[in-house]
Design a protein around this nucleic acid. Structure first.
Length: 449
RNA sequence: GUGGUUGUAGCUCAGUUGGUUAGAGCAUCAGAUUGUGGUUCUGAGGGUCGGGGGUUCGAGACCCCUCAUCCACCCCA
């Protein structure tokens, strides 16, 4: 006998969990649709050539490659090294994220798409990472992106989507943190070390984790002078209200045109006057985000301070994403929801509504052929009214059927035994209260389950 | 890729300095109960102690290898 198991870093989602996950997916989807985003699905596999090189060296390593069919033995023999071997025996790989397939789609369909194109996509992606807490080899991403528009109105709309989704999920106290890559570029410019921009952002991004001292040390290791580090430290300690932060930034970055542009952009996004937020976005100058293709606004959503959880969503503007596939000059901006983490937060704060956890409302007990036949009429009547109802398929002992209802979490049991059959009524028992009442047969469809 | 943790029943875990037939709770099944679940009582089934090798009169325990697991780092969602 083989001991059943699933691959490392993958998960089964049982009925209870799928329901709760769907509640999150549905809430997000509903908001995406309300804001005019259109659904897109792309294949689980992409051509290896579409994906390689798009996520850096690390990404290529973490990509799941799909073995070619047929005789790979012969092809493998001709390979001289690992890289050639992979090329010889694999031409497809599992989707690594949703953004690159989206870019590929836009380029392939550029003649048919009405730009700006607003799409959302909720599908699993795969990474051959070493699994650990909150980190899996198969996980879902929920992205919404706009391509083909430089307007900052898109940034505002995407922030509103975050605001709406978390409001609809009943998750109060989330923090929408925003920054702008141009501000970080401006900082590097002011220091005169533009070539170290990536190193600077990577270090700054770790401030929460390793503290000011840690950042200092890392910056120094990456080749920055004490004067540079002092400037960066001054930058990192910028505080106060959004307006005060913007003023301090303007002061610090006055010699950088790029930096000032970033400040202008942030100002617009925050004070567009277009609308009001439930969760007002907060400027966080230390926000950097790892991906270095971002070029404008960047955003990250932090879970309420009461739960120990990092980011539950993030995104930003990137220029020229489709340039990789030969379509230049198309700018995009997008956001992403971390569904697994949102799930954990809702679970911890007990925020899943009852309706997200219930399936069948009524179970009709099966007490023999004639009784079951009577039950069937009620079943169809209830289903027509949108009430989930089912009958226990076997005429088992009553107590077994009751136990089944209990275990399934079905709130009501309907009993049609000999006496009910002759009296033309149904006994309906509420399993939560233990109370039971007889309801006339023709009134069952109107019963308040 | 680096460092560490833990592998014993379906699940969560006990198991003393190495010593007879490896235990508990939960879960499962049956009965108490031929029309009433969630509470209670009685009983039953269920384990090659992750796998392989070694030390020993004797290994679940000690040693080596290996596999799996979870956690941290790197990186990321």
């Amino acid at each position: 006998m083989i001991k059943p198991s699933i691959p490392k870093g993958t998960r089964d989602f049982g009925p209870v969990i799928v329901r709760k996950r769907n509640y999150i997916f549905n809430t997000i989807r509903q908001v995406f649709e309300l804001y005019g985003f259109q659904p897109l699905e792309t294949p689980a596999m992409e051509n290896l050539s579409t994906l390689t090189g798009k996520y850096g060296e690390e990404g290529d390593k973490l990509m799941f490659k799909v073995l070619d069919n047929g005789d790979i033995f012969e092809a493998a023999g001709k390979a001289a090294n690992n890289k050639e071997l992979v090329a010889a025996i694999s031409e497809k790989a599992l989707r690594y994220d949703l953004t690159i397939p989206f870019a590929r789609y836009v380029v392939m369909n550029q003649n048919d798409l009405a730009l700006p194109f607003k799409r959302y996509q909720m599908q699993p992606v795969w990474r051959a990472d070493k699994p650990q807490k909150g980190r899996y080899r198969e996980f879902y991403q929920c992205d919404a992106d706009v391509v083909g528009s430089n307007s900052l109105v898109n940034e505002v709309e995407l922030l509103l989507i975050y605001d709406a989704v978390f409001t609809n999920l009943g998750l109060a106290g989330v923090e929408l943190r925003v920054n702008n890559r141009k501000i970080l570029s401006g900082l590097a410019e002011v220091i005169g070390k533009q070539e170290l921009l990536t190193d600077i952002t990577i270090s700054i991004d770790k401030l929460d984790k390793i503290g000011a001292e840690g950042v200092r040390k890392e910056l120094s290791d990456r080749g920055l002078s004490d004067t540079d580090i002092n400037t960066i430290e001054k930058f990192l300690t910028i505080g106060g209200t959004n307006e005060e932060k913007l003023n301090q930034l303007a002061d610090l970055l006055q010699s950088s045109a790029t930096g000032l542009k970033g400040i202008e952009e942030l100002k617009f996004v925050l004070n567009s006057g277009l609308t009001a937020f439930n969760n007002e976005p907060i400027i966080d100058v230390t926000l950097a985000r790892g991906l270095n293709y971002y070029t404008g606004m960047i955003v990250e959503v932090k879970a309420p301070a009461t739960v120990k959880m990092g980011s539950i969503g993030g995104g930003g503007r990137y220029d020229d994403l489709t340039g990789l596939f030969g379509l230049k000059g198309i700018s995009g901006v997008g956001i992403s929801f971390g569904v697994d983490r949102i799930y954990d937060v809702l679970e911890e704060l007990n925020l899943f509504p009852e309706t997200a956890q219930q399936s069948t409302k009524v179970l009709f007990l099966n007490l023999g052929e004639a009784n079951a036949a009577a039950a069937f009429k009620h079943l169809q009547g209830l289903r027509a009214k949108g009430i989930a109802a089912e009958i226990y398929p076997d005429a088992s002992k009553m107590d077994k059927q009751m136990k089944y209802a209990n275990k399934r979490g079905i709130p009501f049991v309907a009993i049609i035994g000999e006496s009910e059959l002759s009296e033309n009524n149904v006994s309906i028992k509420n399993l939560a209260t233990g109370q039971q009442e007889k309801v006339a047969a023709d009134a069952v469809a109107h019963y308040n389950f």
